[in-house]
Write a protein that binds this DNA or RNA. Structure first.
Lengths: 227, 227
DNA sequence: ATTACTAGGCCACGAGTAA
DNA sequence: TTTACTCGTGGCCTAGTAA
């Protein structure tokens, strides 16, 4: 009896937006119904229930009435608002991945060492990566999908370039931390189309050495999401 | 089919708070049910409906699953959040009163001219009021009730004092504007207990003269609410 | 343990309508 | 016009239970 029912949220919120917190506002059940996408009868019932619950108070002028939100009504909406606020803004705003170290073909290392890339790394990441990438195999579908989603976000963009013969694609970098210790960047390559079951990292340091990682070692990567 | 149903708000919001925006989170329908104050079955159904609606996506591992909020799910919660945000914060944050000018007994004018009051007015309102109060008769129950509510808020407090013989009560001031023109303060006196059908205003200027008001003239007062 | 089906109750809603 | 009643339908929820 004390809690606000979820189907009253829109109704109460509408009264709020009309200034019902401080003033008795004049409104008909028909227009209220239209505004909350329900019937006149539903609006009438909503008000009755809100009144019984102590969320609003009414003053009648013959058939019509004025309505005002009570302190209790305010705190209910306020509570909900802060609940959502928490959920949205202070929810763990990082992506967490787990996977195992594997050996790559030295391919990533080769590309990332090209001068046109390192120049951009230097200016955009403020460091020149250790020559070599760390390859991590994601063994869980949910991590793969999560990277998939991430890859559609805007990271730090390293532009593509051409040496006259061929084109080298863009690279998107997402800052993160491996095993809570080493700062690194997850790199998404233009050439890697959809398969993110193996991901690559670059860092200022030699990650493998710093963390004493071997093939098959498990690593945990946290990537903060900023929006 | 596209809109989020109100009874799913809590469910989705809970998934959010667990970090479900960026990660696939592992959760059982039983614990989810407990968290949203519903049964395990209801939680199961909610997830099914949210999935069908495209608000979440699931990955199954045998019987259990991981769940993640989709972009669509995010924008729904976000929309609701902003709706509430608008309702709460940018709702007309002023109290509006209407009433008619009446003549007082000169009583308020007398008290408010006492030096111990004017000293405090000078320091707390930055002006010494014109000697005389404007009395306004509120003829609508809703305005009276609104003032009733207001009187329980903290305005600018003018402290009570004693001259040795008797005590002069405190005065609470609420800044406002009469007829959109003259700045003034609604004063709530300690001695006025509950009846706010007649309210009094003080101002730097002579309100009656400035606005050419006579007895029975209708005035409109706006009092901003700051919280 | 887990998810999710079925059955049944209760409640929210809209149509019709009185006042 | 207005509010708000009654009544029927549909949908949300829980209990029980299968897998």
């Amino acid at each position: 009896m004390t809690d606000l029912k979820t189907h009253h949220i829109l109704t109460l919120s509408h009264l709020f937006s009309k200034g019902g917190k401080h003033n008795f506002i004049t409104i008909t059940t028909a227009t209220l119904g239209k505004n909350i996408g329900k019937s006149q009868q539903a609006a009438s019932l909503h008000l009755k229930e809100l009144e019984n619950g102590g969320f609003i108070e009414r003053i009648y002028h013959g058939r019509t009435f004025s309505v005002k939100i009570t302190q209790k009504g305010y705190s209910e909406i306020s509570t909900l608002y802060h609940l959502l606020s928490k959920s949205i803004s202070s929810s763990p705003s990082h992506l967490e991945l787990k996977g195992k170290i594997i050996s790559g073909m030295g391919e990533g290392a080769y590309y990332m060492s090209l001068k046109e890339y390192t120049k951009q790394f230097k200016s955009k990441l403020s460091y020149i990566p250790f020559p070599g990438t760390l390859n991590v195999k994601l063994n869980d579908e949910r991590y793969i999908q999560a990277v998939n989603n991430l890859s559609e976000q805007n990271g730090i963009k390293i532009n593509s370039f051409s040496d006259g013969t061929r084109t080298f694609g863009w690279v998107k970098c997402f800052s993160g931390v491996i095993n809570n210790k080493i700062e690194c960047e997850l790199i998404i390559l233009e050439r890697t189309h959809h398969d993110h079951s193996i991901i690559e990292f670059i860092s200022k340091k030699n990650i493998r050495k710093s963390l004493r990682l071997k093939d098959n070692s498990t690593v945990k990567i946290k990537i903060p999401i900023t929006e």
